[in-house]
Amino acid sequence: MILEPLLPKVLSVRHIPAAHPALLRSYGADPERHVSLGLVTCDQDDPTYVALDEATKHAQVDVVFAKSFYAGAAHASGPLSGEILGVIAGADPDEVGEGLAALLRCLAHDACFYAANDAGTIAVFPHVITSLGHYLSKVAGLAPGSSMAYLVAPPIEFTVALDAALKAAAVEPAQIDPPPSATNFASAFLSGAQPDCEAAAMAFAAAVVDVARRPIRPTAY
């Protein structure tokens, strides 16, 4: 079934109420401002980035660490590693707990990859963030609260689809990461008004589906 949600699987969630300062420092937190850490691993990295950003909108937390693992979830170092480790930090353990709850809500109900072919072997992430939190806004260099289309697909699909997305609406590329990423995908952040971001994201998804259906075109070659 095309464009069926491929739901992300949360592999681990842990909360360290009062982390050791050395650990805080090595994961990018500031022991002066942060006390508590929230950790999550998941088999889909991009929905997790979106969910981490969502956490910053619901609680007084900072995303201090978020890195994708090489070659993706299918080649993970262990059953709990998945594709990404995300870490949020805050001064108040309750805030971190609230942040983790928002993050898990987002992974369960909002951010996910979609199947671009019937077999479900091609994944596309045409996600629209209506209002950026202070994590992704910093990554993308946009103002918190603005809208953004977060687009991810495998290399060839991404290239064709990004072109379609940029032409579909009045959007500006905030960041384009050509392939390969750590997980061998490619991604782009497009900024614009929310309706433009939505139009661009849907054009992107439609183009990925189109490439998946007809990978070799024109056939004359």
């Binding site: 079934m1 095309i2 464009l3 069926e4 949600p5 045409p126 996600h127 629209v128 849907m202 589906v209």
Partner: peptide
């Protein structure tokens, strides 16, 4: 789900592309 604007949009796009079978 009303929680996700993206899921609403993708469901509409899916319908447009001709996939009629219900989603899980």
């Amino acid at each position: 789900s009303a929680l996700s604007r993206t899921r609403e949009l993708v469901a509409a796009l899916r319908h447009e592309l001709g996939a009629q079978d219900p989603l899980p």
